[in-house]
């Protein structure tokens, strides 16, 4: 009871601030644009607003034009329109929000674009963090005698997580060669869960919607797909292309098998992507409710703010759970697919 009362008090403390900002926001807010700008990629990283001052990080643009070669410049240069022949694609064109080049005849063409966007920067941060976490843990094991000391600190925290995935690998791939695949599964699990969790943290340099981006989940799924299909035993391919079935099924089954093998990474991609994206959109929608009701009178505004904050907290916990579940599901499915490819029958 005491905790609940203090939460309400805390919310009441913030109410005037919301009211004030609600009064200030005179212009119509396009909520779908707000939400999509939060979950999408961007050439700049919007950190915070202090009054009317936007604190933004302009990220480097790296593009290669077919005609003029490589270009490297800050995305701030594009704020005023064209720079070195590049500009943002028009809102109604196929490349809205992306950097385009004015081609011959007025058509927009996409240059080869490997800019350090918001997602790429977040990728750097989270990957660096993962690298640090694991290498520090590994360093503990190198510097201490495991026969004499129990792990402490970071190692004590990371060990059960790593060993849980190691156990998943052992169960699904088999005693013989699970040790070969365990690093990949650990990597996939930790990378996904780390980015899932960091995606929920709304502060710079986190909060990028990495695992809710299809390019990211597709890459992960393609890693799994490559490992499954390039390291499978010959029994796996025999089962796929020359199954032991009646003659009339022989030409049909390989088609189905190949299709199913191709669908596995697609399902991995879409499952993780859709789950994380949906979670982000839900939280953003709940937060947007505050701004939607801002004009509907102080009573409704105040009560809905409380409701949406409580609901937002609940959704954050839900996201926390989903972060783990999705990372675990991806890892388990990957290990099962690898296990199938490594089965001896």
């Amino acid at each position: 009871m005491k905790a609940i009362r203090s939460i309400f008090l805390l919310l009441a403390l913030f109410l005037p601030g919301f009211l004030l900002s609600g009064q200030e926001t005179e212009a119509e807010v396009n909520f779908s644009e707000v939400i999509f700008s939060h979950i999408g990629d961007s050439y700049r990283w919007h950190i915070a607003d202090f009054g009317n001052k936007h604190v933004e990080l302009y990220l480097p643009v790296i593009v290669r034009s077919k005609t003029t070669g490589w270009h490297l410049f800050s995305s701030k240069k594009l704020e005023d329109g064209e720079y070195q022949g590049f500009r943002f694609g028009s809102a109604d064109g196929p490349y809205a929000g992306k950097i385009v080049e004015q081609g011959v005849g007025g058509a927009e063409t996409r240059p080869l674009d490997i800019s350090i966007t918001k997602n790429v920067l977040a990728l750097f941060f989270s990957s660096g963090l993962l690298l640090l976490l694991i290498l520090l843990t590994a360093r503990w094991y190198k510097r201490h005698d495991v026969y004499k000391e129990a792990p402490t600190g970071l190692a004590a925290f990371m060990e059960p997580i790593v060993m849980m995935i190691d156990e998943v690998a052992r169960e699904n791939i088999g005693e013989e060669d699970y040790a070969r695949y365990s690093p990949y599964l650990c990597m996939a699990f930790l990378w996904i869960i780390l980015n899932n969790l960091l995606g929920v943290v709304p502060l710079f340099p986190f909060g990028a919607n990495l695992t809710g981006n299809i390019a990211i989940t597709m890459t992960l799924a393609l890693f799994t797909f490559s490992i499954v299909n390039f390291t499978g035993r010959k029994e796996y391919y025999k089962e796929m292309f020359l199954p032991d079935v009646p003659l009339f099924l022989k030409p049909v089954l390989p088609v189905i098998e190949v299709f199913s093998a191709l669908m596995k990474p697609v399902s991995l991609t879409v499952r993780l992507f859709a789950n994380m994206l949906a979670g982000h959109i839900m939280i953003l929608c709940i937060v947007c409710v505050i701004f939607v009701v801002a004009k509907m009178g102080p009573a409704l505004f105040g009560s809905m703010t409380v409701v949406s904050v409580i609901f937002g907290i609940f959704l954050d916990f839900l996201e926390f759970l989903v972060s783990f579940i999705q990372a675990y599901v991806f890892t388990i499915l990957s290990s099962i697919y690898i296990g199938i490819a490594r089965a001896k029958e």
Partner: peptide
């Protein structure tokens, strides 16, 4: 997005290589 795909493959690959060798 092609650019993100490129960076993801590169970074994930590098981190995976390092961790698979000296980490996990």
């Amino acid at each position: 997005d092609g650019g993100l795909l490129f960076w993801m493959v590169l970074i994930f690959g590098i981190v995976f290589f390092i961790l698979a060798k000296w980490g996990f």
